[in-house]
Each structure stands twice: as C-alpha cells, then as structure tokens.
Design a protein around this nucleic acid. Structure first.
Lengths: 364, 364
DNA sequence: ATTAGCACTCGAAAGAAGAGAGTGCCAGCA
DNA sequence: TGCTGGCACTCTCTTCTTTCGAGTGCTAAT
C-alpha cells in the first residue's frame, strides 16, 4: 500500500531533519520547514498515522518522532533526493584518488582511508578475491639449512617464505621439488591441494625429510589467506563524533567489532556488476549483532585482475545516506575507471613484473 | 634531596593503588595495605609533605591523593618493582610471536597488534630505518607507452612503479636509462639525488622526453618514503576501556591524533642498542601536545638489516608501567632474537631473494 | 478535510538535602 | 621529637524534588 504524497513529504522531512540534528523532530518544525502548506495540527495527525504504519516512532509520549529502520528504508528507496556532489567535491575526490593511486598502485586500505576521510565515518575496504591459484613456483636454495619458497599467484602478487631447517638438505632435492611443484601445484585452487596430491609429490621427489609437507602447507596457507577476503577498517575514531556514540561502552563495542575486521558485509551475494550500485543496509538488516543499530553503505568497484573491491562506510542509522551514497558511488566509479577495465595496461604490467621477478612492494 | 624510606614506601603505595583503582587514594587505604606499621594520621602527615614536594596532588581538598607526573617518574625510576612475567605469559608471547613471524616475515604492524593485545593499550610500531639507498635498478619495458621502474633497496625490500606515458618511447631509451640509473643512482642516499645529477643523466641518456625526471622523482619519493619512519597504530579502541577516556571528546582527540600516525616518539634520540632498555615518557614529558596527559612506553628491538624497530604503547598516565614495561621488554627481546642478530640466515635470505628477483610480499 | 486552542504528559534541567570520604590539626602519649 | 587517636570541617557525589517546556492528542469550529 502506498503512502499519500503528503505523507511521503512529511516522512522525508522528518528523516532529513533528524539526520541533520539527531533530535526527535516535532510537528511544528516540519510545518515551518516550508514545502508543506498546512498547520502543525494536520501534520500531527499524519505523524500519528505514520507511527501506526511503522515508519516512525516516539521515544516517549511527549517527544518528537524518530524514523524507524523501516522509515529509513522507505527514505532510501524512494524519498531521498539523489545528492549531486558539488564540483569542488568531485574534484577533491579525483585529486586524492590520483594522488593515492600514483604512490601505491592498488593498496586497498588506502582506499578505505580515503572513503573515511571523505564521509567522516569509519570505512572498510575489502577486496573480494576470485579463487586464486598459484601461477608459478620457485624454490630458492640459500644454504644447506635454508631455502625460500616463492609463489606467484594468479591475482598478480607474489608471496614468499624463508624456511629454516634443523637438518641439511642438498640442492638437488630443492631443485627437484621446485620442478615438481611447478608442474603439479600451479593453476589449482585451494581445494585441489589434497593430501593425496601432497603425498604423491613427496614420493615423486624422493623426499624423506618432510620438505614437501612444509611447502604444501605454505601453499595452502597462502591460498587461504589470499582468497579469504580481509577487511581493512580505518577511521574508527570518527564514530566518536557521532552523538549516538557518546556512550563510550556503545562506541567501544562497535569499534572493537570493527577493528576485528568483522564480517560486516552480507554473505557476499555478489554485488551487481554495474559499479554505480550502492547498497544500503539499515540497522537490523545487518547480519552481525553488533551492527543491529548501525547502518552500512557499500559500493563495489572493479579492481582489475578479475577482482571486485568493496568499499563501505559504517555509521549510526541516522546516517547521511544521500551524501554518503553519492560520495561512495563516485569514489567507486573513479576506482573502477582507474584500476579496472580488464584492458592491457594493468594486466600486462603485472605479468611482466612477475616474469621479471618482482611484485608487491608494500608492507601490510 | 632524597626521600625518606617511608616516604618512598608511601609514594609507591599511592601509585600502585591509584594504578589499580583509578580513584584518588586516601590515607586510610594506605595504612591498611600492610607494609607500613603506622596509623593513618602519620601517613596523612607524610602525604601532605609529598604534596608539598610535588610528587602528589589532591583533586580537591577532601579527596585522596593522586600522583603527579613527577610522582610517576619517581615511581618508574626507583620505586616500582620490576615485574616478572609469569611462565604462562612468556609462553603466550613466544607462542604468538612464533605464529606471527612464521606467516609474515617482518610485518611491523602485526607486531604492534600483538603488543596492543598483550597490554590492552593502543600500540604503535615503527621501524626507524637507517639511511636507505638504492641497491639495484631495473627498468622493464612493457610497451611503447608503458614501463616499470623497479628499485631494489639496501634495506632488502623492493619498490616498483608502473609508468604510463602519453607518448611513445622506444625500447632503446629505456634500456639506456636503465643502465645509467644503475650506474649512478645506486648506493646513494636521498640527499645525493641532486638536480645536477638528474640533469647530467638526462643528457647522457639523450632523453628528450622527460623520462629521467619521472624516474628520478620516483627514486626520491621512494627513498623518502622508506627512510621516513612511519608508525602503525593498532588497538586505538582499547583506550575507551580506560576510565580516563570515558569522556568521548578526550578519547576522540587522542585517538585521531594516534590514527594520524602522529609523531609520538621523541626526536629519535636513538634508543640505546641494548634491546632490553625500555623507555617511559610520562605525561608532559611527551613532546606532542595531544600526549601531554598520556604516557608512552617504548621498547626497541633489532629488526635485522641494520634496522632498529620501535614498539610502544600509549595509555593514561595512570598506566600499569611495571607490567607494560615487562611485556614490551620481553616482546622486544623476542623480536630481536628472531629478526636481528646480523648473522647469516636472515641477511643471506634477503640477499638471495633479491638476486633471484622477489621481495616484499605483503600489502600495506 | 483542516485548523486553532487547550489540557495533559513526560523527560530534562535546576535546585536542595544528605551522606560519606578524607583532610588538617590538636592534644596526649612514648 | 615523633606517633597516634580524635574531632570538626570541607567538598564532592548521590538522590530526591521541583520546575519548565516541548510536544502531543483531542475537540470544536471553520
């Protein structure tokens, strides 16, 4: 059942005002805020109905109205006017985007930082990796007790590990293992690294010292680590400037949840490919208990290498959805433009780079 | 002028108790807390004198006493008993240290996280790099509009950058530049990259397209970035569990200062080489305005590659100095043992690794 | 249907009173 | 001289009460 036009206007006014002031808004305030040509009494009646319908609620009998999650949902879906960013804002974002991307090719946590600064809410950035495989395998013999495993991954990064052994191994074995792993562990996903495969490799290499197991463990560990999307949270402290988090306990709870890199996003029901989609999760719509009275706004972008990145912002349900959505959307679009595209440049670059030997040059 | 033995005992008792409870401590509490065989009246007299001498202060006339920064200083320097960690605690630290260091060779931010978890205070981790130079120089030609700069640095990491040009360059020029840079830009520090040097290289390479400048800029930028110690802050949210930060504004101020990776440590008057030294900065002893009523405990460790790392913890002046110092000291020692030493293994590893081509495998 | 008016409700802010913790000081005792 | 018990005093913190006012719901009039 639809809302009357006037109810919509009133609801929008309540949400707008509440977002602005964080105080329950009364009938008088709405009546005066123009755009409605009727008295506060009329508005009171409408408000009462909106409360009945579940879009608003009253903290107590003689207070103004506050939007319910359902009210916010209606606001986000139909009511709010899509905010246009000012020229200055878009320029600012582009400028910083260029800056960031120049110095650190693809470091997702910096994208988060940027989002947080732009919106003044805590932000999270995660890259939802596709299934990653090992593309190339190197074992570097250092000395009798030391060798290095280098994995070049399908997502155009490399991982390495120094292995220190209590016993001596000869260079031959290392060489053998290197070829064998290169032959049978490349191109396969985490799940395909089975005990059977490991065991057969071990026998083929004539490895009596358990090196195979060590290497395989590293492969598994790495694949797991890389395919598990990890979230970077930045700007948690910005929560503290929100009135709803003046209670340190509340703030603390949410902040430590965030710091834990909590599983904020809904069981990644893959965001639509179009990078301008912005998703809003309001209060109880969040799965995590800790987020039940916060809201999350997420945008998705094409991060190249067949990877989509997610970038989001967390705040109180009384969040400035319209501005935040606009900013995130613009940011995501900018990122897609710069990082993604699947054309030659980034792809080619990384390949070359790997072939030549070097990759990731940042620290975590 | 020294403090009488009894005064010392009393001061220690006040600090201990205040650290424990965060409440001003009264004469009665001290009298009862054993170890002093005198009445509260006597203690009151002593307390009054300690206030006069500047070691203690009273929030108001009829409240207990609270240590001043000077009082804490005395406590830290002479009074506090060096805490011994329990076997469990040391084992816990070692266990996690092993765990961490296994997966991520030398990632300093994780060390910070560990410190924060152990102490339950926000922690910072920085590596104070020695002067870094470029050890080796590669230019990789990708296509006419694209090449990659790869710098292998003296601190055993590599940095790379993809350069996209609006104009076409031929492979020869890239090759020429590669050799030239390799010849004249290696082994020199940031300061030695002068305009003169850049200009002469440009002429030598017969570069009319400004590539030299681009590359040189990247060298400078990278050297700068690497030699500038950057701080990683973790666990800011733990501040919120401290009673002194129940005021959101206070908390917010400090937290955003910390998040800014603030220049927390004193103008690195290089910590003593011995890795068990732990330095304590109490309240106003800190240079940063924002830290004037917080304390910082820092330990230094040998991070290998001629690098010393600093690891520190921030908290209210009412900080559990003794436990924190013990934990940090133990942690730093453990890190030194594992990372440092200057012996073959780690050093050798990194060299080999670079020669073979790969390095840093983490993201920031 | 809309509006003006009015009595009513309920939270927040302001004020008042009481309790309690801790002090300073004095007088007596070793 | 140094320590102790005692006592009056101070000052904050808590609790209770009161007041104030914003905002409501309802009713009667337009």
């Amino acid at each position: 059942m639809g809302l009357s036009d006037r109810k919509k206007k009133i609801l929008a006014a309540v949400v707008d005002e509440y977002i602005r002031t964080a105080e329950p808004v009364g009938s008088k305030a709405i009546a005066q805020s123009g755009s409605l040509n009727c008295s506060s009494a009329t508005i009171r009646n409408e408000l009462a109905e909106l409360v009945n319908m579940g879009y608003l609620e009253q903290p107590h009998t003689s207070a103004g109205r506050v939007p319910t999650p359902m009210g916010y949902r209606m606001y986000v879906n139909e009511l709010m006017e899509k905010q246009k960013l000012s020229l200055e804002e878009t320029e600012e974002i582009n400028r910083r985007l260029n800056l960031k991307l120049q110095e650190l090719d693809d470091t997702i946590s910096d994208v988060g930082r940027l989002a947080s600064q732009l919106t003044d809410y805590p932000a999270l950035a995660i890259t939802a990796q596709m299934a990653v495989t090992v593309k190339r395998f190197d074992l570097i013999y250092v000395d009798a007790n030391t060798f290095i495993i280098v994995l070049t991954l399908s997502n155009s990064t490399a991982r390495s590990k120094l292995v220190h052994l209590p016993i001596s191994v000869d260079q031959d074995l290392v060489q053998r293992l290197s070829s064998l792993f290169n032959a049978s562990f490349t191109g396969i996903t985490q799940e395909a690294v089975t005990p059977v495969l490991i065991h057969s490799t071990e026998r083929a290499a004539d490895d009596t010292m358990g090196l195979t197991a060590v290497i395989a463990a590293f492969v598994l560990e790495t694949l797991h680590e890389v395919s598990t999307p990890t979230a970077f949270v930045t700007g948690e402290n910005r929560l503290l400037s929100q009135p709803e988090f003046r209670d340190p306990d509340k703030a603390h709870k949410l902040m430590s949840y965030l710091s834990g890199g909590g599983h904020i996003f809904p069981p990644s029901e893959g965001m639509a490919p179009g990078s301008d989609e912005v998703r809003v999760l309001i209060g109880p719509e969040n799965v995590a208990e800790e987020l039940k009275d916060s809201s999350v706004v997420i945008a998705s972008y094409d991060a190249g290498d067949n990877t989509r990145g997610l970038i989001g912002v967390v705040g109180p349900t009384r969040m400035d959805y319209s501005t935040v959505a606009a900013k995130l959307s613009f940011l995501a679009a900018g990122l897609s433009r710069r990082l993604g595209g699947g054309e030659a440049p980034p792809e080619g670059m990384h390949n070359k780079l790997i072939i030549k030997g070097d990759t990731g040059n940042e620290r975590r």
